[in-house]
Simulated scan of single mutants.
Amino acid sequence: MKAIVIGGTGATGKELVAQLLEDSRFVAVTVLVRRPFFGQQAKLTEIVVDFERLNEYKVHIQGDVAFSCLGTTLKDAGGKDAQWRVDHDYQLEFAAIARASGVESFVLLSAFGANANSYFFYNKMKGKLEDNIKKLNFKQLVILHPGGIERPGSNRKGERVMMKLLNACNAIGLFKGYEPISTNRLAKAMIASYFKFKETLKVVILKEIKEISAYQH
């Protein structure tokens, strides 16, 4: 099988690419990146792209399954419009090109609370993306809804504080939907979900993410 990945240089994406390369079920992995990152590795094809002209790279967006874990923060993007461009527009265009190229399966890393009707910008953005990708009619669409994500070596002070608070709250049974999960386990769940869930549409909640992250082939 062949996999195509965007968002492969992020915390979860790096884990995902590494695991795909180690997985004998995948004979080729194509990663679309903004700048060179991975170097030469067996089975890996790294394509440097301009996400503003993604359609020009459609020849590379072909395979059995597409994985999307692209995303940025409001701070890093520099504003809501810029974040929407990355988190919604780029991923939707990638999905549309993949579908038009005959890719039948799509695995999307979304977020707990994603809802197109939400009053919260982030949740609304994620919900809109999900709704729009659903309209592409993939044969298999898997959407993962993790809570907090534990990124190893994170340099985001606010994120580190939030993870500590969530862990403390989880210990007394609060905010279980936001219980943190490591990028390693989340990447495992993304791959496992492709093989485990064959429904046309499957939304994978945190409990299931934790379960399938231990799924062995």
Results as ranks from 00 to 15, higher is better:
residue 9 T to P: 04
residue 119 Y to D: 12
residue 98 A to T: 00
residue 102 G to P: 13
residue 71 G to W: 04
residue 148 G to Y: 04
residue 59 V to P: 02
residue 12 T to F: 03
residue 158 G to Y: 08
residue 195 F to K: 06
residue 195 F to M: 07
residue 119 Y to H: 12
residue 204 V to F: 05
residue 108 L to P: 08
residue 20 L to A: 12
residue 100 A to F: 02
residue 102 G to V: 10
residue 11 A to H: 14
residue 66 A to I: 10
residue 133 I to C: 04
residue 162 M to P: 03
residue 140 Q to E: 08
residue 180 P to D: 00
residue 212 I to G: 01
residue 34 R to W: 06
residue 10 G to S: 12
residue 72 T to R: 10
residue 144 L to H: 09
residue 16 L to C: 01
residue 82 A to C: 03
residue 206 L to S: 11
residue 90 Y to R: 11
residue 154 S to E: 10
residue 159 E to M: 13
residue 164 K to W: 11
residue 112 F to S: 08
residue 207 K to L: 08
residue 118 S to Y: 06
residue 191 I to L: 11
residue 160 R to G: 12
residue 122 Y to S: 07
residue 214 A to C: 02
residue 161 V to R: 00
residue 172 I to H: 09
residue 215 Y to T: 05
residue 59 V to E: 15
residue 155 N to D: 14
residue 213 S to T: 08
residue 87 D to H: 00
residue 38 F to Y: 15
residue 149 I to T: 10
residue 35 R to N: 09
residue 176 K to H: 13
residue 198 K to G: 02
residue 100 A to S: 14
residue 94 F to K: 04
residue 65 V to D: 06
residue 168 A to M: 13
residue 216 Q to K: 13
residue 30 T to I: 08
residue 12 T to K: 00
residue 180 P to I: 07
residue 101 S to P: 00
residue 19 Q to D: 14
residue 97 I to E: 12
residue 42 A to R: 11
residue 82 A to T: 08
residue 15 E to V: 00
residue 134 K to E: 13
residue 168 A to R: 06
residue 81 D to S: 15
residue 14 K to F: 00
residue 215 Y to C: 06
residue 49 V to M: 04
residue 180 P to G: 06
residue 194 Y to V: 03
residue 193 S to G: 12
residue 37 F to E: 10
residue 145 H to I: 01
residue 180 P to T: 07
residue 194 Y to N: 13
residue 58 K to M: 05
residue 106 F to P: 01
residue 40 Q to M: 13
residue 171 A to W: 14
residue 109 L to P: 00
residue 68 S to W: 00
residue 155 N to S: 14
residue 203 V to S: 14
residue 36 P to K: 02
residue 124 K to F: 07
residue 176 K to W: 05
residue 194 Y to M: 05
residue 20 L to H: 12
residue 6 I to D: 12
residue 216 Q to A: 13
residue 158 G to P: 01
residue 92 L to Y: 13
residue 16 L to Q: 05
residue 124 K to V: 00
residue 87 D to E: 01
residue 13 G to C: 12
residue 91 Q to P: 04
residue 79 G to V: 09
residue 148 G to V: 05
residue 81 D to C: 11
residue 210 K to Y: 09
residue 15 E to N: 14
residue 38 F to D: 00
residue 69 C to T: 14
residue 44 L to I: 05
residue 8 G to Q: 06
residue 22 E to N: 15
residue 215 Y to A: 11
residue 213 S to K: 00
residue 23 D to Y: 06
residue 148 G to K: 03
residue 84 W to C: 03
residue 154 S to K: 11
residue 185 R to K: 15
residue 113 G to H: 03
residue 75 K to Y: 09
residue 138 F to E: 00
residue 33 V to P: 06
residue 125 M to P: 08
residue 63 G to Y: 09
residue 82 A to R: 15
residue 18 A to C: 10
residue 22 E to S: 15
residue 116 A to F: 01
residue 1 M to N: 06
residue 204 V to W: 04
residue 23 D to E: 13
residue 215 Y to V: 06
residue 32 L to M: 04
residue 170 N to K: 00
residue 90 Y to M: 14
residue 27 V to C: 11
residue 209 I to R: 05
residue 215 Y to S: 02
residue 178 Y to R: 00
residue 84 W to G: 01
residue 166 L to D: 02
residue 205 I to S: 14
residue 31 V to I: 05
residue 128 K to D: 15
residue 9 T to G: 05
residue 44 L to D: 09
residue 157 K to N: 08
residue 28 A to R: 14
residue 165 L to I: 15
residue 169 C to T: 12
residue 71 G to C: 04
residue 16 L to R: 04
residue 141 L to G: 03
residue 14 K to Y: 02
residue 79 G to Y: 03
residue 1 M to T: 11
residue 80 K to S: 02
